[in-house]
Nucleic acid binder design. Structure first.
Lengths: 125, 125
DNA sequence: CACATATTGATAATCATTTTCAATAAGAGT
DNA sequence: ACTCTTATTGAAAATGATTATCAATATGTG
C-alpha cells in the first residue's frame, strides 16, 4: 500500500481543475472553504507540494508566495504572467540545446531552470 | 537633502563587493558580524532592497530566500547557479526580440522577466 | 553650532510554509 | 463485514524569512 485515495486529495485536484490560473495555497484553501469544502490548510500545502513534486502541477513564485497550477504531465512549462490580474499563458520554452550549450560552456550540468515573463495582459494594459 | 552617507551603507556595499556570489540578507549580516562590523539586521535588509530597487544589485530567489549580488548598472542579468555551492555565472540573456515576440503574440506587454538555470558547477559535479 | 530629518537598530509583528502528533480512515487480508 | 496496519488528516505550534514600529542617533545644510 503506497498511496491512498482521500476526499481531500480529490477535492484539491478538482479545485485546481476549476481554477485555470495560478493560485496560492492560501487562496485555494479559502476557495475550498467558500465552496463548502473544509480541508485543513496543512493538507492543502501537502497536496499542492505533492502534485508539484510529481510533476502534475507547475509552480511559480510571485510576490513572496508560491503559486500552483495543474499542467499536463509533459514536464514543466514557462509562462507569461499578468502582473495585475494574474492571468497566465504558457509560452514556448527556450530550446533545451540552447540551455545545455550555455551550461556546458561553463562546465555546469543542467538540473532545472525557470523562465517567467511578467507584463500586462490585453485586458489590463 | 535626499540621501545620506552612513558607515552602514558603506559597509554593506563593501561587503557585497567582497562577496562575488549571491548571498542572503541573513548570511551577509552574519558575515559582517564575523568581520567585526555590527549592523542591525533590519538595516541590512533595507540596504539590500534599496540596492536592488536602484538596479545596483541583482537578486534571485533560491530555496525560499532572496539572494543578492552587486552587478553593473547595465540592467539585470541571468544566471547559472550551482545548487550545491551557490557559485554563479552570468549567462547570455534570451534576446529581447524573442521575448517581445512571444508577448506580442498574446497581446501582453513585457515589464520584466526572469531566467535562471540551476545545476552543478564543475567542482561539485 | 543648531536644526530638520534621514537613518539606524532592537524588537515586535507579519506571513507563508512546515512540523508535530494524536485522531481518523483507506484498503489489504481474512 | 471485521480487523489491522499505516497513510493521511487537521489543529495548533513552530519555523524562518522579511517587514513594520518607533524612539534614539547621526548627517549635512544653513
Amino acid at each position: 500500500m503506497v498511496q491512498r485515495q482521500t476526499r481531500q486529495k480529490d477535492a484539491i485536484r478538482e479545485a485546481l481543475r476549476e481554477n485555470d490560473e495560478f493560485i496560492s495555497a492560501q487562496d485555494l484553501h479559502r476557495w475550498l472553504e467558500e465552496h463548502g469544502t473544509h480541508i485543513g490548510l496543512a493538507t492543502v500545502y501537502r497536496q499542492l507540494n505533492a502534485l508539484a513534486d510529481a510533476g502534475l502541477a507547475d509552480t511559480i513564485r510571485l510576490d513572496g508566495q508560491q503559486l500552483f497550477r495543474l499542467c499536463g504531465d509533459d514536464g514543466h512549462h514557462h509562462h507569461l504572467v499578468c502582473v495585475r490580474c494574474g492571468r497566465t499563458v504558457e509560452i514556448e520554452p527556450p530550446s533545451e540545446s540552447w540551455l545545455r550549450g550555455i551550461a556546458d560552456a561553463h562546465g555546469f550540468t543542467v538540473e532545472s531552470h525557470t523562465l517567467e515573463v511578467f507584463g500586462l495582459c490585453p485586458d489590463c494594459r
